[in-house]
Simulated assay, not measured.
Amino acid sequence: MSNVTDDDDDLKDVIKNLVQIETENPPGNERLCSEYIIDWFEERNINAELIERPYPDRPQVGVRIGNGSPTIVLNGHIDVVPAGDREQWDHDPYSATVEDGKLYGRGSVDMKTGVAVGMLATASLADEIRSGNVDGSIVFQAAIGEETAEPGTKTLLEEGYDGDYGVVLEPTEMRTATSEKGLAWYEITVTGDPSHASRPDQGTNAIQSAQPVLDALNDYDTEVRTREDDLVGQAYSTVTMFEAGTKENVVPEQATITIDRRFLPSEDIENIDNEIDNMLLEIAAVNDIGVSWERIRTYESAAIEENSPLAEVFRRHSAKTDDAPTNSWGINASTDVRNLVNDANIEAITWGPGDISQAHTYNEHIELSDAMIAFDVLSGAAREILNGAIDD
């Protein structure tokens, strides 16, 4: 799109610096990264606030520039999933090695490149806002805890770092997502009665009691898969974990089944709870077994109008690139866009550089040229919105 510029070099340096700061969650080591971001903005005479909510030992960052209308919020999370077995990486996951135009490292795609692009776009637009060349205001959020559904972004919104429009800078290959699936994890516990394995009939084997539950969950997944959304596809209910037993010669007294329930914007979490509850009550009654359940984590679904003015602006600017599709689209993963849309009533999209299939993988990497294009697209789209391109 353009020759190498100072912005390109700055962006590459910021991505490298962010990736080199290990912020694995769990346990949640975001402090050093937040402090780096604070210092980076202050070096550019931009006030940035270290927010010590919801956790004092894991602060996050909020930036607001200008007081005009409209306000656009650029959101990114700084926590990453653990790197896993480092022997499986071709490069140290926190070395931010650059090779053949790719930057390798945990978080390079998910989503420190998005954070870096947001930082540079915020700083670039700050100069235009302060000079009066741009009318609106910009908010930048560097949130903690997204990988484990913690209230990082939600807290930043409560602290006043909100606006009229929002962009969650997750890796979408610069496709504009106006909807996303929700995610709920359920733990189902089947109880039995322990005994020595030499006298198995003395006890009640929780693994055997769990079999009709597994069968029912398979039937439930088959039914759920018939539910579809034009943008985000099918719903799913997948058994992902099974835990039972304490020792080889003990009949297990408990079995725990975990399911991953991906749900559509049209589905309601309370209705899903009722589906799970009614299914398990019936199985327990028919098979005379003890069953209980708990929803242990929830990422709500979210959606705005498919042809919202915000989405149209980003589609149009993304169309200036060679590869970014401009058709209507929804994201299968869950992001903090749900907090902007559902909690703060902000018209928000998920949009950013990088291929989401790289997220959470060994040898995770980003094409640096994509990051540089994303900076140009984001800056241009945000500038147009701040100058009143979208009518209220």
Rank of each mutant, 00 (worst) to 15 (best):
A48P: 08
I346A: 11
A319N: 12
G203W: 03
N218K: 15
N205P: 09
I373W: 13
A116Y: 14
P59A: 10
N271F: 05
P26D: 02
P151F: 01
T189Q: 12
L280F: 06
E173R: 12
D164E: 10
G152M: 02
G136A: 03
R44Q: 11
A381M: 04
L183T: 11
N249K: 12
Q211E: 15
V313H: 04
Y104G: 07
D100E: 14
G145D: 07
I366L: 14
G28E: 05
E87P: 00
A121Q: 08
Q141P: 03
N342T: 07
G62I: 11
A324V: 02
Q202Y: 14
T298V: 15
E128A: 05
A389G: 03
V61K: 01
T97N: 12
S328T: 14
V286L: 13
I65N: 06
E364I: 05
T256W: 11
G145Y: 09
S379W: 01
W351Q: 01
I51T: 11
Y362M: 02
L11S: 11
Q208C: 07
E248M: 09
Q358L: 04
R295W: 00
D230Y: 10
R338Y: 10
D201G: 02
R225F: 14
A121F: 07
W40G: 00
V139Y: 14
D288L: 13
S292Q: 13
A184M: 15
V286R: 13
L125K: 02
K320F: 03
I289K: 00
A216D: 09
I78M: 15
D268R: 11
R383A: 06
D336L: 00
E147Y: 04
P93E: 05
N218C: 09
Q88K: 15
N75W: 01
D288T: 14
V337F: 04
G192K: 07
E52D: 13
T298A: 06
V80S: 12
L50Y: 11
E49A: 09
I38F: 05
G114D: 09
D391F: 11
E42Y: 05
A143W: 06
T321L: 09
E347R: 12
N25I: 03
A149R: 02
A371K: 02
Q202R: 05
R316F: 09
V232M: 05
G107T: 03
D391L: 13
K16S: 15
W351F: 15
V19Y: 04
A121S: 15
D135E: 15
G166H: 05
N274F: 09
Y165K: 00
D90G: 12
D229M: 06
R53E: 11
N339Y: 14
I51P: 01
K102S: 06
L264S: 04
G233I: 05
T191S: 15
T321P: 05
V115T: 09
A381R: 01
E159M: 08
A324K: 02
V117Y: 06
V286G: 01
D110G: 03
I21W: 11
E270R: 10
A344F: 08
T153D: 04
I21P: 01
E35Y: 09
F242A: 12
H365M: 03
I366K: 06
